[in-house]
Design a protein around this nucleic acid. Structure first.
Lengths: 255, 255
DNA sequence: AACCTAGGTTTATTATAATAAACCACGATG
DNA sequence: CATCGTGGTTTATTATAATAAACCTAGGTT
Protein backbone atom coordinates (compact mmCIF):
# COMPACT_ATOMS: atom_id res chain seq x y z
CA UNK A 1 0.00 0.00 0.00
CA UNK A 2 1.24 3.46 -0.92
CA UNK A 3 3.09 5.20 1.87
CA UNK A 4 3.11 8.75 0.63
CA UNK A 5 0.37 11.25 1.44
CA UNK A 6 -0.75 8.69 3.93
CA UNK A 7 -2.61 9.13 7.21
CA UNK A 8 -1.77 6.09 9.32
CA UNK A 9 -4.36 6.98 11.93
CA UNK A 10 -7.06 6.24 9.40
CA UNK A 11 -5.54 2.94 8.45
CA UNK A 12 -5.39 1.99 12.10
CA UNK A 13 -8.97 3.07 12.66
CA UNK A 14 -9.95 1.05 9.63
CA UNK A 15 -8.28 -2.06 11.02
CA UNK A 16 -9.96 -1.55 14.36
CA UNK A 17 -13.36 -1.16 12.76
CA UNK A 18 -12.81 -4.24 10.64
CA UNK A 19 -11.92 -6.34 13.64
CA UNK A 20 -14.67 -4.94 15.82
CA UNK A 21 -17.22 -5.54 13.10
CA UNK A 22 -16.14 -9.17 12.96
CA UNK A 23 -16.34 -9.70 16.70
CA UNK A 24 -18.58 -7.08 18.28
CA UNK A 25 -18.61 -6.90 22.07
CA UNK A 26 -15.73 -9.35 22.27
CA UNK A 27 -12.58 -7.26 22.20
CA UNK A 28 -11.05 -4.97 24.77
CA UNK A 29 -8.32 -2.38 24.31
CA UNK A 30 -5.57 -4.89 24.93
CA UNK A 31 -6.97 -7.45 22.49
CA UNK A 32 -7.21 -4.91 19.72
CA UNK A 33 -3.72 -3.69 20.51
CA UNK A 34 -2.26 -7.19 20.38
CA UNK A 35 -4.13 -8.55 17.42
CA UNK A 36 -3.42 -5.55 15.26
CA UNK A 37 0.09 -4.90 16.50
CA UNK A 38 -0.73 -1.35 17.49
CA UNK A 39 0.86 0.17 20.55
CA UNK A 40 -1.60 0.23 23.40
CA UNK A 41 -1.19 3.92 24.12
CA UNK A 42 -1.92 4.67 20.49
CA UNK A 43 -4.90 2.40 20.76
CA UNK A 44 -5.98 4.28 23.84
CA UNK A 45 -6.10 7.62 22.03
CA UNK A 46 -7.63 5.98 19.00
CA UNK A 47 -10.46 4.35 20.92
CA UNK A 48 -10.99 7.46 22.95
CA UNK A 49 -11.50 9.50 19.79
CA UNK A 50 -13.56 6.87 18.04
CA UNK A 51 -15.83 6.62 21.02
CA UNK A 52 -16.32 10.38 21.14
CA UNK A 53 -17.20 10.36 17.45
CA UNK A 54 -19.55 7.43 18.06
CA UNK A 55 -17.72 5.19 15.65
CA UNK A 56 -17.58 2.63 18.43
CA UNK A 57 -19.28 2.24 21.77
CA UNK A 58 -17.59 1.01 24.91
CA UNK A 59 -19.67 -1.60 26.62
CA UNK A 60 -20.01 -1.81 30.42
CA UNK A 61 -17.38 -4.58 30.45
CA UNK A 62 -15.19 -2.20 28.43
CA UNK A 63 -15.43 -4.27 25.28
CA UNK A 64 -16.14 -2.45 22.07
CA UNK A 65 -18.79 -2.68 19.37
CA UNK A 66 -19.70 -0.56 16.38
CA UNK A 67 -21.24 2.83 17.02
CA UNK A 68 -24.27 4.50 15.60
CA UNK A 69 -22.33 6.96 13.48
CA UNK A 70 -21.21 4.13 11.25
CA UNK A 71 -24.74 2.88 11.02
CA UNK A 72 -25.75 6.32 9.89
CA UNK A 73 -23.00 6.65 7.31
CA UNK A 74 -23.54 3.11 6.09
CA UNK A 75 -27.20 3.84 5.68
CA UNK A 76 -26.35 6.91 3.63
CA UNK A 77 -24.15 4.74 1.45
CA UNK A 78 -26.93 2.34 0.61
CA UNK A 79 -29.40 5.17 0.20
CA UNK A 80 -27.60 6.08 -3.01
CA UNK A 81 -29.05 2.97 -4.55
CA UNK A 82 -32.79 3.33 -4.78
CA UNK A 83 -32.96 -0.05 -6.48
CA UNK A 84 -32.29 -1.70 -3.16
CA UNK A 85 -35.72 -1.01 -1.71
CA UNK A 86 -37.50 -2.47 -4.67
CA UNK A 87 -35.16 -5.44 -4.66
CA UNK A 88 -35.90 -6.16 -1.02
CA UNK A 89 -39.60 -6.14 -1.58
CA UNK A 90 -39.66 -8.24 -4.73
CA UNK A 91 -36.89 -10.65 -3.83
CA UNK A 92 -38.60 -11.42 -0.55
CA UNK A 93 -41.34 -13.04 -2.62
CA UNK A 94 -39.12 -14.74 -5.17
CA UNK A 95 -36.87 -16.30 -2.56
CA UNK A 96 -39.82 -18.25 -1.25
CA UNK A 97 -40.65 -19.76 -4.58
CA UNK A 98 -37.03 -20.75 -5.21
CA UNK A 99 -36.27 -21.39 -1.55
CA UNK A 100 -32.77 -20.04 -1.95
CA UNK A 101 -30.83 -16.88 -1.17
CA UNK A 102 -31.03 -14.03 -3.65
CA UNK A 103 -28.49 -11.23 -3.93
CA UNK A 104 -28.16 -7.84 -5.57
CA UNK A 105 -24.84 -6.40 -6.71
CA UNK A 106 -23.30 -3.76 -8.91
CA UNK A 107 -20.08 -3.74 -10.87
CA UNK A 108 -17.19 -1.67 -9.59
CA UNK A 109 -14.20 -1.92 -11.88
CA UNK A 110 -13.18 -5.58 -11.82
CA UNK A 111 -15.20 -6.39 -8.71
CA UNK A 112 -18.80 -7.01 -7.86
CA UNK A 113 -20.06 -4.98 -4.92
CA UNK A 114 -22.86 -6.66 -3.00
CA UNK A 115 -25.72 -4.30 -2.24
CA UNK A 116 -28.39 -6.42 -0.61
CA UNK A 117 -29.23 -9.96 0.27
CA UNK A 118 -32.51 -11.77 0.84
CA UNK A 119 -31.73 -15.09 2.39
CA UNK A 120 -33.62 -18.21 3.35
CA UNK A 121 -32.97 -19.66 6.78
CA UNK A 122 -30.32 -22.32 6.33
CA UNK A 123 -27.62 -24.01 8.40
CA UNK A 124 -24.90 -22.71 6.09
CA UNK A 125 -24.90 -19.12 5.05
CA UNK A 126 -22.98 -17.46 2.29
CA UNK A 127 -20.30 -15.21 3.64
CA UNK A 128 -21.09 -12.50 1.12
CA UNK A 129 -22.63 -9.47 2.80
CA UNK A 130 -23.81 -6.11 1.56
CA UNK A 131 -20.77 -3.87 1.15
CA UNK A 132 -18.44 -6.75 0.39
CA UNK A 133 -16.58 -7.25 -2.86
CA UNK A 134 -15.51 -10.25 -4.90
CA UNK A 135 -13.65 -10.43 -8.21
CA UNK A 136 -16.25 -10.09 -10.95
CA UNK A 137 -14.98 -12.97 -13.07
CA UNK A 138 -15.51 -15.60 -10.37
CA UNK A 139 -19.21 -14.83 -9.87
CA UNK A 140 -22.35 -15.24 -11.91
CA UNK A 141 -23.29 -11.69 -10.94
CA UNK A 142 -20.04 -10.36 -12.29
CA UNK A 143 -20.30 -12.26 -15.53
CA UNK A 144 -23.89 -11.11 -16.04
CA UNK A 145 -22.69 -7.51 -15.82
CA UNK A 146 -19.39 -7.85 -17.65
CA UNK A 147 -21.29 -9.43 -20.52
CA UNK A 148 -22.97 -6.16 -21.41
CA UNK A 149 -19.79 -4.10 -21.42
CA UNK A 150 -18.67 -2.58 -24.70
CA UNK A 151 -15.64 -4.32 -26.19
CA UNK A 152 -13.45 -1.29 -25.50
CA UNK A 153 -14.53 -1.03 -21.87
CA UNK A 154 -13.84 -4.68 -21.37
CA UNK A 155 -10.39 -4.30 -22.88
CA UNK A 156 -9.69 -1.40 -20.54
CA UNK A 157 -10.63 -3.45 -17.50
CA UNK A 158 -8.72 -6.58 -18.51
CA UNK A 159 -5.84 -5.17 -20.54
CA UNK A 160 -3.87 -8.36 -21.06
CA UNK A 161 -4.33 -12.10 -20.95
CA UNK A 162 -3.71 -11.66 -17.23
CA UNK A 163 -3.59 -14.30 -14.57
CA UNK A 164 -6.86 -13.68 -12.80
CA UNK A 165 -7.21 -14.44 -9.10
CA UNK A 166 -8.34 -18.03 -8.59
CA UNK A 167 -10.64 -18.88 -5.71
CA UNK A 168 -11.36 -22.52 -6.53
CA UNK A 169 -10.08 -25.08 -9.04
CA UNK A 170 -13.08 -24.20 -11.18
CA UNK A 171 -12.35 -20.47 -11.39
CA UNK A 172 -11.85 -19.14 -14.89
CA UNK A 173 -8.16 -18.84 -15.54
CA UNK A 174 -7.72 -16.86 -18.72
CA UNK A 175 -9.19 -13.82 -20.33
CA UNK A 176 -10.10 -15.71 -23.47
CA UNK A 177 -12.08 -18.24 -21.47
CA UNK A 178 -13.86 -15.37 -19.75
CA UNK A 179 -14.67 -13.75 -23.08
CA UNK A 180 -16.18 -16.98 -24.36
CA UNK A 181 -18.42 -17.27 -21.33
CA UNK A 182 -19.46 -13.63 -21.57
CA UNK A 183 -20.50 -14.14 -25.18
CA UNK A 184 -22.66 -17.06 -24.11
CA UNK A 185 -24.15 -15.05 -21.25
CA UNK A 186 -24.89 -12.16 -23.61
CA UNK A 187 -26.70 -14.50 -25.96
CA UNK A 188 -28.71 -16.25 -23.27
CA UNK A 189 -29.45 -13.29 -21.03
CA UNK A 190 -28.08 -14.89 -17.87
CA UNK A 191 -24.81 -16.22 -16.47
CA UNK A 192 -23.67 -19.11 -14.32
CA UNK A 193 -21.13 -19.75 -11.63
CA UNK A 194 -20.38 -23.43 -11.16
CA UNK A 195 -18.30 -23.66 -7.99
CA UNK A 196 -16.05 -20.93 -9.35
CA UNK A 197 -16.23 -18.71 -6.29
CA UNK A 198 -16.99 -21.13 -3.47
CA UNK A 199 -16.60 -24.90 -3.63
CA UNK A 200 -19.96 -26.61 -3.41
CA UNK A 201 -21.99 -23.63 -4.58
CA UNK A 202 -23.56 -22.70 -7.90
CA UNK A 203 -25.34 -19.55 -9.01
CA UNK A 204 -27.45 -18.09 -11.79
CA UNK A 205 -27.49 -14.36 -12.36
CA UNK A 206 -29.23 -11.91 -14.68
CA UNK A 207 -28.58 -8.25 -15.36
CA UNK A 208 -30.85 -5.36 -14.42
CA UNK A 209 -31.06 -2.64 -17.06
CA UNK A 210 -32.22 0.94 -17.00
CA UNK A 211 -34.62 2.54 -19.46
CA UNK A 212 -31.79 3.06 -21.95
CA UNK A 213 -30.89 -0.61 -21.77
CA UNK A 214 -27.64 -0.03 -19.91
CA UNK A 215 -26.79 -2.64 -17.31
CA UNK A 216 -26.74 -1.06 -13.87
CA UNK A 217 -26.76 -4.05 -11.53
CA UNK A 218 -27.49 -7.76 -11.39
CA UNK A 219 -29.26 -10.29 -9.21
CA UNK A 220 -28.35 -13.88 -8.49
CA UNK A 221 -29.59 -17.00 -6.83
CA UNK A 222 -27.10 -19.25 -5.02
CA UNK A 223 -27.54 -22.88 -4.07
CA UNK A 224 -25.67 -26.03 -3.12
CA UNK A 225 -24.05 -27.84 -5.97
CA UNK A 226 -26.10 -30.97 -5.23
CA UNK A 227 -29.34 -29.01 -5.67
CA UNK A 228 -28.22 -27.48 -8.92
CA UNK A 229 -29.49 -30.23 -11.19
CA UNK A 230 -32.99 -30.18 -9.73
CA UNK A 231 -33.44 -26.46 -9.18
CA UNK A 232 -31.42 -24.88 -11.89
CA UNK A 233 -34.21 -24.38 -14.37
CA UNK A 234 -36.63 -22.90 -11.85
CA UNK A 235 -34.00 -20.56 -10.46
CA UNK A 236 -32.97 -19.41 -13.90
CA UNK A 237 -36.55 -18.64 -14.87
CA UNK A 238 -37.33 -16.83 -11.63
CA UNK A 239 -34.14 -14.79 -11.63
CA UNK A 240 -34.76 -13.65 -15.20
CA UNK A 241 -38.32 -12.74 -14.34
CA UNK A 242 -37.24 -10.79 -11.28
CA UNK A 243 -34.50 -9.04 -13.23
CA UNK A 244 -37.00 -8.02 -15.86
CA UNK A 245 -39.35 -6.69 -13.21
CA UNK A 246 -36.64 -4.67 -11.50
CA UNK A 247 -35.47 -3.36 -14.86
CA UNK A 248 -38.73 -1.54 -15.36
CA UNK A 249 -38.06 2.12 -14.74
CA UNK A 250 -34.97 1.35 -12.74
CA UNK A 251 -33.15 4.50 -11.68
CA UNK A 252 -29.45 4.51 -12.31
CA UNK A 253 -27.25 3.18 -9.58
CA UNK A 254 -25.16 6.08 -8.40
CA UNK A 255 -22.14 7.50 -10.25
CA UNK B 1 -14.82 18.29 22.74
CA UNK B 2 -12.01 16.75 24.76
CA UNK B 3 -8.57 17.60 23.44
CA UNK B 4 -6.45 15.06 25.25
CA UNK B 5 -5.75 11.59 23.89
CA UNK B 6 -7.23 12.89 20.71
CA UNK B 7 -6.59 11.88 17.11
CA UNK B 8 -7.54 14.86 14.97
CA UNK B 9 -7.18 12.89 11.77
CA UNK B 10 -10.19 10.85 12.78
CA UNK B 11 -12.22 13.91 13.59
CA UNK B 12 -11.35 15.34 10.20
CA UNK B 13 -12.23 12.10 8.47
CA UNK B 14 -15.49 12.08 10.37
CA UNK B 15 -16.34 15.58 9.19
CA UNK B 16 -15.49 14.67 5.63
CA UNK B 17 -17.67 11.58 5.74
CA UNK B 18 -20.52 13.54 7.26
CA UNK B 19 -20.37 16.14 4.53
CA UNK B 20 -19.92 13.64 1.74
CA UNK B 21 -22.83 11.58 3.01
CA UNK B 22 -25.01 14.69 2.84
CA UNK B 23 -23.96 15.62 -0.67
CA UNK B 24 -22.58 12.59 -2.46
CA UNK B 25 -20.93 13.21 -5.83
CA UNK B 26 -21.12 16.96 -5.31
CA UNK B 27 -17.94 17.94 -3.55
CA UNK B 28 -14.37 18.12 -4.78
CA UNK B 29 -11.18 18.42 -2.76
CA UNK B 30 -11.32 22.17 -2.66
CA UNK B 31 -14.96 22.28 -1.56
CA UNK B 32 -14.33 19.93 1.30
CA UNK B 33 -11.25 21.89 2.26
CA UNK B 34 -13.11 25.19 2.29
CA UNK B 35 -16.34 24.09 3.88
CA UNK B 36 -14.60 22.26 6.71
CA UNK B 37 -11.74 24.69 7.16
CA UNK B 38 -9.15 22.00 6.63
CA UNK B 39 -5.93 22.82 4.85
CA UNK B 40 -6.03 21.52 1.31
CA UNK B 41 -2.79 19.60 1.59
CA UNK B 42 -4.10 17.86 4.68
CA UNK B 43 -7.26 17.16 2.76
CA UNK B 44 -5.17 15.77 -0.05
CA UNK B 45 -3.51 13.19 2.19
CA UNK B 46 -6.78 12.51 3.93
CA UNK B 47 -8.72 11.82 0.76
CA UNK B 48 -5.86 9.82 -0.67
CA UNK B 49 -5.91 7.53 2.35
CA UNK B 50 -9.66 7.34 2.53
CA UNK B 51 -9.83 6.40 -1.09
CA UNK B 52 -7.26 3.64 -0.66
CA UNK B 53 -9.25 2.28 2.27
CA UNK B 54 -12.42 2.52 0.19
CA UNK B 55 -14.08 4.84 2.66
CA UNK B 56 -14.78 7.13 -0.26
CA UNK B 57 -14.61 6.80 -4.02
CA UNK B 58 -13.36 9.46 -6.38
CA UNK B 59 -15.72 9.91 -9.26
CA UNK B 60 -14.52 10.57 -12.83
CA UNK B 61 -15.13 14.31 -12.33
CA UNK B 62 -13.03 14.00 -9.16
CA UNK B 63 -15.98 14.52 -6.87
CA UNK B 64 -16.33 12.19 -3.93
CA UNK B 65 -19.00 9.83 -2.66
CA UNK B 66 -19.12 7.20 0.05
CA UNK B 67 -17.16 4.01 -0.46
CA UNK B 68 -18.11 0.41 -0.11
CA UNK B 69 -16.12 -0.14 3.06
CA UNK B 70 -18.53 2.06 4.93
CA UNK B 71 -21.43 0.17 3.48
CA UNK B 72 -19.87 -2.99 4.75
CA UNK B 73 -19.20 -1.66 8.24
CA UNK B 74 -22.61 -0.04 8.41
CA UNK B 75 -24.20 -3.31 7.43
CA UNK B 76 -22.28 -5.04 10.22
CA UNK B 77 -23.60 -2.45 12.62
CA UNK B 78 -27.20 -3.16 11.77
CA UNK B 79 -26.55 -6.90 11.71
CA UNK B 80 -26.19 -6.76 15.47
CA UNK B 81 -29.91 -6.19 15.67
CA UNK B 82 -31.68 -9.27 14.46
CA UNK B 83 -34.98 -7.59 15.24
CA UNK B 84 -34.52 -5.41 12.22
CA UNK B 85 -35.20 -8.14 9.69
CA UNK B 86 -38.42 -9.14 11.33
CA UNK B 87 -39.42 -5.51 11.66
CA UNK B 88 -38.87 -4.90 7.96
CA UNK B 89 -41.03 -7.81 6.98
CA UNK B 90 -43.90 -7.13 9.35
CA UNK B 91 -43.88 -3.37 9.18
CA UNK B 92 -44.03 -3.52 5.39
CA UNK B 93 -47.51 -4.96 5.83
CA UNK B 94 -48.65 -2.72 8.65
CA UNK B 95 -47.58 0.46 6.92
CA UNK B 96 -50.05 -0.27 4.15
CA UNK B 97 -52.99 -0.60 6.50
CA UNK B 98 -52.09 2.63 8.31
CA UNK B 99 -50.70 4.33 5.21
CA UNK B 100 -48.00 6.03 7.25
CA UNK B 101 -44.29 5.66 7.98
CA UNK B 102 -43.27 3.21 10.70
CA UNK B 103 -39.95 3.30 12.52
CA UNK B 104 -37.91 1.10 14.80
CA UNK B 105 -35.55 2.46 17.44
CA UNK B 106 -33.66 1.52 20.56
CA UNK B 107 -32.77 3.54 23.61
CA UNK B 108 -29.18 4.64 24.05
CA UNK B 109 -28.73 6.60 27.23
CA UNK B 110 -30.89 9.70 26.87
CA UNK B 111 -31.30 9.29 23.12
CA UNK B 112 -33.31 7.15 20.78
CA UNK B 113 -31.27 5.52 18.05
CA UNK B 114 -33.21 4.84 14.86
CA UNK B 115 -32.63 1.34 13.52
CA UNK B 116 -34.96 0.99 10.57
CA UNK B 117 -37.70 2.78 8.72
CA UNK B 118 -40.55 1.56 6.55
CA UNK B 119 -42.00 4.53 4.79
CA UNK B 120 -44.92 5.27 2.56
CA UNK B 121 -44.29 7.36 -0.53
CA UNK B 122 -45.08 10.93 0.39
CA UNK B 123 -44.13 14.43 -0.71
CA UNK B 124 -42.63 15.20 2.70
CA UNK B 125 -40.36 12.74 4.37
CA UNK B 126 -39.24 12.61 7.95
CA UNK B 127 -35.59 13.47 8.28
CA UNK B 128 -35.00 10.66 10.76
CA UNK B 129 -32.84 7.94 9.22
CA UNK B 130 -31.45 4.68 10.52
CA UNK B 131 -28.35 5.45 12.56
CA UNK B 132 -29.60 8.86 13.61
CA UNK B 133 -30.29 9.94 17.16
CA UNK B 134 -32.80 12.25 18.79
CA UNK B 135 -33.30 13.13 22.46
CA UNK B 136 -35.52 10.43 23.94
CA UNK B 137 -37.86 12.77 25.76
CA UNK B 138 -39.03 14.56 22.60
CA UNK B 139 -40.19 11.40 20.83
CA UNK B 140 -42.97 8.90 21.30
CA UNK B 141 -40.42 6.14 20.77
CA UNK B 142 -38.26 7.46 23.56
CA UNK B 143 -41.13 7.85 25.97
CA UNK B 144 -42.36 4.33 25.22
CA UNK B 145 -38.96 3.00 26.22
CA UNK B 146 -38.22 5.34 29.12
CA UNK B 147 -41.55 4.34 30.61
CA UNK B 148 -40.34 0.85 31.38
CA UNK B 149 -37.15 1.94 33.09
CA UNK B 150 -36.74 1.18 36.78
CA UNK B 151 -37.05 4.28 38.98
CA UNK B 152 -33.35 4.12 39.84
CA UNK B 153 -32.25 3.86 36.21
CA UNK B 154 -34.43 6.78 35.30
CA UNK B 155 -32.93 8.84 38.10
CA UNK B 156 -29.45 7.97 36.89
CA UNK B 157 -30.26 9.16 33.39
CA UNK B 158 -32.00 12.37 34.44
CA UNK B 159 -30.25 13.26 37.68
CA UNK B 160 -31.80 16.63 38.30
CA UNK B 161 -34.78 18.66 37.26
CA UNK B 162 -32.64 19.56 34.26
CA UNK B 163 -33.47 21.85 31.40
CA UNK B 164 -34.04 19.36 28.63
CA UNK B 165 -33.29 20.31 25.03
CA UNK B 166 -36.36 21.82 23.42
CA UNK B 167 -37.04 21.20 19.74
CA UNK B 168 -40.47 22.80 19.44
CA UNK B 169 -42.73 24.89 21.68
CA UNK B 170 -44.51 21.64 22.57
CA UNK B 171 -41.43 19.81 23.81
CA UNK B 172 -41.59 18.65 27.40
CA UNK B 173 -39.69 21.12 29.54
CA UNK B 174 -39.24 19.56 32.94
CA UNK B 175 -38.40 16.21 34.40
CA UNK B 176 -41.57 16.12 36.47
CA UNK B 177 -43.70 16.62 33.37
CA UNK B 178 -41.79 13.82 31.68
CA UNK B 179 -42.35 11.53 34.67
CA UNK B 180 -46.08 12.18 34.56
CA UNK B 181 -46.24 11.28 30.88
CA UNK B 182 -44.17 8.17 31.42
CA UNK B 183 -46.55 7.01 34.12
CA UNK B 184 -49.42 7.42 31.70
CA UNK B 185 -47.55 5.59 28.97
CA UNK B 186 -46.73 2.76 31.36
CA UNK B 187 -50.38 2.43 32.25
CA UNK B 188 -51.65 2.53 28.69
CA UNK B 189 -48.93 0.54 26.99
CA UNK B 190 -48.14 3.20 24.41
CA UNK B 191 -46.84 6.77 24.20
CA UNK B 192 -47.54 9.88 22.15
CA UNK B 193 -45.60 12.72 20.65
CA UNK B 194 -47.77 15.70 19.78
CA UNK B 195 -45.57 18.01 17.75
CA UNK B 196 -42.89 17.71 20.41
CA UNK B 197 -40.09 16.78 18.05
CA UNK B 198 -41.16 18.29 14.73
CA UNK B 199 -43.84 20.93 14.27
CA UNK B 200 -46.78 19.52 12.39
CA UNK B 201 -46.10 15.88 13.22
CA UNK B 202 -47.58 13.48 15.74
CA UNK B 203 -46.60 9.91 16.66
CA UNK B 204 -47.75 6.88 18.58
CA UNK B 205 -45.20 4.38 19.82
CA UNK B 206 -45.21 1.09 21.68
CA UNK B 207 -42.39 -0.87 23.31
CA UNK B 208 -41.04 -4.22 22.14
CA UNK B 209 -40.17 -6.61 24.96
CA UNK B 210 -38.07 -9.73 25.15
CA UNK B 211 -39.12 -13.04 26.70
CA UNK B 212 -38.26 -11.73 30.18
CA UNK B 213 -40.46 -8.71 29.63
CA UNK B 214 -37.59 -6.25 29.40
CA UNK B 215 -38.05 -3.46 26.91
CA UNK B 216 -35.45 -3.74 24.16
CA UNK B 217 -36.76 -1.42 21.47
CA UNK B 218 -39.85 0.42 20.29
CA UNK B 219 -41.80 1.10 17.12
CA UNK B 220 -43.71 4.18 16.13
CA UNK B 221 -46.03 5.56 13.51
CA UNK B 222 -45.68 9.20 12.45
CA UNK B 223 -48.23 11.35 10.68
CA UNK B 224 -49.22 14.92 9.94
CA UNK B 225 -50.89 16.72 12.78
CA UNK B 226 -53.99 17.28 10.65
CA UNK B 227 -54.43 13.55 10.15
CA UNK B 228 -54.01 12.78 13.80
CA UNK B 229 -57.64 13.10 14.76
CA UNK B 230 -58.86 10.73 12.07
CA UNK B 231 -56.08 8.15 12.15
CA UNK B 232 -54.91 8.15 15.71
CA UNK B 233 -57.01 5.25 16.89
CA UNK B 234 -56.18 3.00 13.96
CA UNK B 235 -52.47 3.77 14.26
CA UNK B 236 -52.46 3.15 17.99
CA UNK B 237 -54.15 -0.22 17.56
CA UNK B 238 -51.89 -1.32 14.72
CA UNK B 239 -48.70 -0.21 16.42
CA UNK B 240 -49.60 -2.07 19.58
CA UNK B 241 -50.46 -5.18 17.58
CA UNK B 242 -47.19 -4.99 15.67
CA UNK B 243 -45.22 -4.40 18.86
CA UNK B 244 -46.84 -7.45 20.42
CA UNK B 245 -45.99 -9.54 17.39
CA UNK B 246 -42.37 -8.44 17.34
CA UNK B 247 -42.12 -9.03 21.08
CA UNK B 248 -42.67 -12.74 20.58
CA UNK B 249 -39.31 -14.45 21.04
CA UNK B 250 -37.45 -11.24 20.33
CA UNK B 251 -33.72 -11.61 20.78
CA UNK B 252 -32.07 -8.91 22.81
CA UNK B 253 -30.80 -5.92 20.95
CA UNK B 254 -27.03 -5.93 21.31
CA UNK B 255 -25.19 -4.93 24.48
C1' DA C 1 -0.41 34.71 -27.63
C1' DA C 2 0.45 36.63 -23.02
C1' DC C 3 -1.77 36.89 -18.70
C1' DC C 4 -4.48 35.54 -15.03
C1' DT C 5 -6.81 32.42 -11.90
C1' DA C 6 -8.24 28.23 -9.60
C1' DG C 7 -7.67 23.49 -8.43
C1' DG C 8 -4.46 20.28 -7.47
C1' DT C 9 0.20 18.52 -6.17
C1' DT C 10 4.81 18.77 -4.03
C1' DT C 11 8.14 20.51 -0.63
C1' DA C 12 9.92 22.38 3.87
C1' DT C 13 8.81 23.50 8.38
C1' DT C 14 6.41 23.09 12.59
C1' DA C 15 3.14 21.13 15.60
C1' DT C 16 1.67 16.98 17.33
C1' DA C 17 0.47 12.03 17.09
C1' DA C 18 2.62 7.59 17.96
C1' DT C 19 5.56 5.23 20.66
C1' DA C 20 8.17 3.24 24.57
C1' DA C 21 8.55 3.30 29.06
C1' DA C 22 7.03 4.23 33.47
C1' DC C 23 3.25 4.00 36.43
C1' DC C 24 -0.89 2.54 38.80
C1' DA C 25 -4.71 -0.31 40.41
C1' DC C 26 -6.53 -4.48 41.04
C1' DG C 27 -7.28 -9.52 41.02
C1' DA C 28 -5.12 -13.79 41.11
C1' DT C 29 -1.90 -16.87 43.30
C1' DG C 30 0.91 -18.96 46.52
C1' DC D 1 -0.74 -11.05 53.35
C1' DA D 2 2.87 -10.27 50.07
C1' DT D 3 3.86 -10.93 45.33
C1' DC D 4 3.11 -11.07 40.66
C1' DG D 5 0.87 -10.19 36.32
C1' DT D 6 -2.29 -7.99 33.54
C1' DG D 7 -4.99 -4.22 31.66
C1' DG D 8 -5.39 0.37 31.60
C1' DT D 9 -3.53 5.32 32.08
C1' DT D 10 0.02 8.94 32.12
C1' DT D 11 4.45 10.98 30.76
C1' DA D 12 8.64 11.98 27.81
C1' DT D 13 10.67 11.32 23.53
C1' DT D 14 10.72 10.63 18.73
C1' DA D 15 8.71 10.10 14.37
C1' DT D 16 5.55 12.05 11.41
C1' DA D 17 1.15 14.32 10.19
C1' DA D 18 -0.58 18.96 9.40
C1' DT D 19 0.39 23.13 7.68
C1' DA D 20 1.90 27.08 4.80
C1' DA D 21 4.00 28.17 0.97
C1' DA D 22 5.72 27.25 -3.38
C1' DC D 23 4.75 25.16 -7.56
C1' DC D 24 2.46 23.33 -11.60
C1' DT D 25 -1.03 22.77 -15.01
C1' DA D 26 -5.16 23.78 -17.53
C1' DG D 27 -8.98 26.98 -18.65
C1' DG D 28 -10.58 31.38 -19.23
C1' DT D 29 -9.90 36.34 -20.72
C1' DT D 30 -8.33 40.21 -23.18
Amino acid sequence: MEKKYWVPALEKANDVLQLVSEQPSKLKLIDLSKQLGINKSSMFSLLNTMEALEWVVREPESTYSLGSKLGFIGNAFFKQFSLIDRFRKEAAITKHTIQETIQLAKLEQRDVLYLAKEEMPSPVRLSSEPGMKLPAHVTALGKAMLASLAESDFEALFPEEALLPELTPFTIKTRSELKAQLAAARAEGFAFDLQEAVMGFCCVAAPIRDAQGRTIAAISCSMFQHEWEAKRELAQREICALAAKLSQDAVQVNS
